[in-house]
């Protein structure tokens, strides 16, 4: 088990990779990658049962990045754990590359779900959880959703069905960074009391600060509870976290930094 300081250092390195990828491609989604990355670092570092040497191991835990545009975050953690190599990160959005614009299981080892269209990952995760139960396996399914994403109606079809089927092995982490493509979520579609909505559907709910490593670890422990309800961690996060001008800035949902901005980001992330 890695210490909190070690996890925080991995997260810093992953943030550098994220900004590098988007800067090199001059396209992509830095904001949501930076908001989710602390959670991904903790999940892969302490909890997820996967094997980089055998990425398609049948009894692995599944991780489903439903907000598939935040792929740089996932590629950064996959590189950290050796599913892909550091040099593969330069293939982000490049023809023939492992690092497709949105995470794609066909192209990238360690990716379980081919994402890109919002609102699909929870249903897929539910299928993964059902399969685990049919197999008599204790393996878990983890699904990362975005807060804008839960405006998709089919998310709630899945939220209802997962409780009906008593899928205690299905775990959602909701990255609530408060910003979606066009603007702040509160401008696009107010969702009011998000935890209450999930509670009303019958989920086990816990709210955490998605950038506080010890709270994240507590949250991941919470997901291990053994009752028959599905679990959700509602993570309060900051879009663009770690790069001052990207933080809480809707412009950096899907835009790359210029040369000057890139230099500033590197400085802020402790790259000499």
């Amino acid at each position: 088990m890695s210490s909190i300081a070690e996890l925080e250092e991995v997260a810093r390195k992953c943030r550098v990779r994220i900004v590098d990828m988007v800067y090199n491609a001059q396209a992509g989604h830095p904001g949501g990658s930076l908001s989710e990355i602390d959670i991904l670092v903790a999940l892969y570092g302490t909890t997820l049962r996967v094997d980089p040497k055998n990425p398609s191991w049948e009894d692995r835990d599944r991780f489903i990045l439903s907000k598939g545009h935040a792929s740089p975050g996932m590629y950064a953690i996959l590189a950290e754990h050796g599913f892909i190599q550091e040099h593969d990160l330069t293939s982000y959005r490049v023809l023939g590359g492992k690092c497709q614009g949105h995470v794609d299981a066909k192209w990238c080892p360690g990716v379980d779900f081919s994402a890109g269209s919002l609102g699909m990952g929870l249903s897929f995760g539910m299928g993964s959880a059902l399969a685990a139960r049919l197999d008599g396996s204790q393996r878990q399914a983890y699904v990362m959703l975005g807060d804008g994403e839960i405006q998709e109606g089919s998310v709630w079809e899945a939220a209802m069905a997962a409780v009906h089927h008593e899928l205690g092995n299905l775990n959602v982490i909701l990255d609530c960074n408060g910003i979606q493509n066009d603007d702040f979520c509160d401008e696009q579609m107010r969702m009011f009391d998000i935890p209450k909505k999930w509670e009303a559907f019958g989920w086990n709910v816990k709210i955490i600060d998605g950038h506080n490593m010890s709270e994240i670890l507590e949250g991941l422990e919470f997901l291990k509870n053994s009752n028959q309800k599905p679990n959700i961690l509602i993570a309060r996060t900051v879009k663009g976290k770690g790069v001052s001008y990207m933080e809480n800035n809707p412009s950096f949902h899907g835009a790359a930094p210029n040369d000057e901005q890139y230099a500033l980001a590197m400085k802020e992330l402790g790259v000499a």
Partner: peptide, 27 residues
């Protein structure tokens, strides 16, 4: 045991199927 009711929710049903297929089942 191998019949899964998805209620009146076709979009979810298709992707539950995808998740099962990706884990070796034939939905």
């Amino acid at each position: 045991q191998r019949t899964i009711s998805c209620g009146i929710g076709e979009q979810n049903m298709f992707l539950v199927g995808a998740g099962l297929a990706a884990s070796g089942y034939i939905p």
